[in-house]
Nucleic acid binder design. Structure first.
Lengths: 112, 112
DNA sequence: CGCTATAGGTAGCAACGCTACATGTGGACT
DNA sequence: AGTCCACATGTAGCGTTGCTACCTATAGCG
């Protein structure tokens, strides 16, 4: 999958991963990979800054904990995050419909 | 439609618009707008640089002409452009499937 | 002891589309 | 005659965004 295609849609994916319950960053990355059969396998250098961004934006809230000697930052969707997720889903559907229509073969009138 | 969502998918749209036959830049913009019911309405500052990029890449070829006192640059898909369009379509479908799956409600196991 | 998986992080870069602006013609309306 | 809009093309500079490459650290396995 072309990596840069993600641009602008990453936030929605991260929010969606947190919808079913709190996860820490690494688990978000793994969940996304499992959920998409490995097609979306984000590098950690993408995931962590993105989560920081979402937290600064108030869409998720994080808290530190320790599990098995490893420190973890577990994130939870805020109410604002839930709302944003709805918007992302709606935006994605509209966007996907538009692009799919534009990419369809044929029925492009060649009106120069 | 969130404008920045286009990132990485614009080239495919432009190539698709030229698939049915040569068009000049402004006509590409209008065709795309008509084709998507106004949802994809690119500013000219997006269209023209993108066409220049595609021409530099050898995916389209342009030639000047004059129609009604107005100068036009008309672009045609090159063989390489046809090939690239195929790739863009395939890439889009894979990408769209992955994102749609990831955004789906439910079935996210909350395995922390 | 070294390797891998787990877990988190930052600095700097490159790509991309957008805003804002500039130029010019033709036609319609006042 | 003057004004305005649609048509038609273009550039400079900006901000966002995800990526690459790197760093730190623990647990467990060979």
């Amino acid at each position: 999958m072309r990596a840069e295609a993600l641009k602008g849609h990453l936030d929605g994916l991260l929010l969606a991963a947190l919808e079913a319950g709190p996860l820490h960053g690494y688990a978000v990355k793994e969940a996304l990979r499992a959920r998409t059969d490995g097609r979306i396998d984000l590098p950690t250098g993408t995931v962590y800054p993105a989560l920081h961004r979402l937290e600064r934006a108030g869409l998720i809230s994080g808290s530190w904990s320790v599990s098995g000697g490893r420190r973890r930052r577990t994130y939870t969707l805020t109410p604002a995050g839930h709302g944003a997720l709805g918007g992302e889903r709606a935006g994605w559907q509209e966007f996907a419909r538009a692009v799919t229509a534009a990419l369809e073969v044929g029925s492009w009138s060649a009106t120069s």
